[in-house]
Amino acid sequence: MDFQEMATDRLELVQIEKHHAKSFFDIMSRDEVAKYYGMSSLNELDEAESIIESFRQTFESGRGIRWGIVVKETGAFIGTVGLNNLNLKGKKAEIGFELHPSYWNKGYVSEAVKEVLAYCFGQLGLFRLGAVTFPENGASIALLQKLGFEKEGRLRAYLYQNNRSHDAFIFSLLADEGTKSANKDISL
């Protein structure tokens, strides 16, 4: 499978390369971002480079896809959106995203996620998309629900971060539901 770059009105969804490492580090070194990512904040640039390399390896193995979110107007790399636990035969994956705090509440994540949903249900032919989030992550939960994701339940001690286990909520969106939500006007 070739990497599919995409574009929306305001964004480009691009393959994340080593030259994005400094911007990615700037995002992931922030406690307010990493606290809901399932890992500790980054401390060194080489950690960002390693994660970017893992995105490449995950894509090449067919287990996931991660796009960089770039603002068309400025060229700023502001976050990522992607698929984890991709299973094309099983027609399912989990979606995840993070964004630099300077760009929160401007509708960028919903714009990017809607494009990824259309790609997943259209080109990839997936039937189910899941999303796992910390129960305290109100902004992500609100976005998922506005996009039509349904809360399925709580996963006990599912995430391990900062030397302790945390519960997580699991959400899902099915293909026939995703078609409807891709047309919604969401402004988170």
Rank of each mutant, 00 (worst) to 15 (best):
M1L: 10
M1F: 03
F3P: 03
Q4E: 11
E5Y: 07
E5H: 07
M6G: 09
T8L: 03
L11M: 10
E12F: 13
V14H: 02
I16T: 10
I16H: 01
H20Q: 08
K22N: 09
F24T: 03
F25E: 09
I27Q: 08
S29K: 11
R30E: 13
R30Q: 14
D31P: 01
E32G: 05
Y36N: 10
Y37K: 09
M39I: 09
S40K: 13
S40A: 15
N43P: 00
E47C: 01
I51F: 07
I52A: 03
I52D: 02
F55G: 02
F55Y: 09
Q57E: 14
S61G: 11
R63N: 12
R63F: 12
G64I: 04
R66F: 06
G68W: 00
V71S: 03
K72I: 12
G75I: 02
A76H: 14
F77W: 00
F77R: 00
F77K: 02
L83C: 05
N84L: 06
N85W: 04
K89I: 14
K89P: 06
K89D: 13
G96Q: 00
H100F: 01
S102L: 09
S102F: 09
Y103L: 04
W104D: 03
W104V: 05
N105T: 10
N105K: 13
K106S: 03
K106F: 04
G107K: 08
Y108D: 06
S110C: 15
E111S: 11
V113E: 08
K114D: 01
E115M: 11
E115H: 08
L117C: 11
A118N: 14
C120G: 12
F121K: 03
L124M: 13
G125S: 12
G125T: 10
R128E: 13
R128T: 14
G130M: 01
T133C: 05
T133A: 07
F134Y: 13
F134C: 02
F134T: 05
G138V: 12
S140F: 00
S140Q: 01
L143C: 05
L144H: 04
Q145E: 15
K146A: 08
L147Q: 00
E150R: 15
K151L: 09
K151D: 06
K151M: 08
E152Y: 05
R156G: 08
A157R: 11
Y158S: 10
Y158A: 13
L159D: 11
N162K: 12
N163E: 14
N163H: 11
D167V: 06
A168Y: 02
A168V: 09
S172D: 06
A175E: 13
A175T: 05
D176G: 04
E177G: 05
T179F: 12
T179E: 15
K180D: 15
N183W: 02
N183E: 14
K184I: 01
D185V: 11
I186C: 06
I186F: 00
I186M: 02
S187C: 07
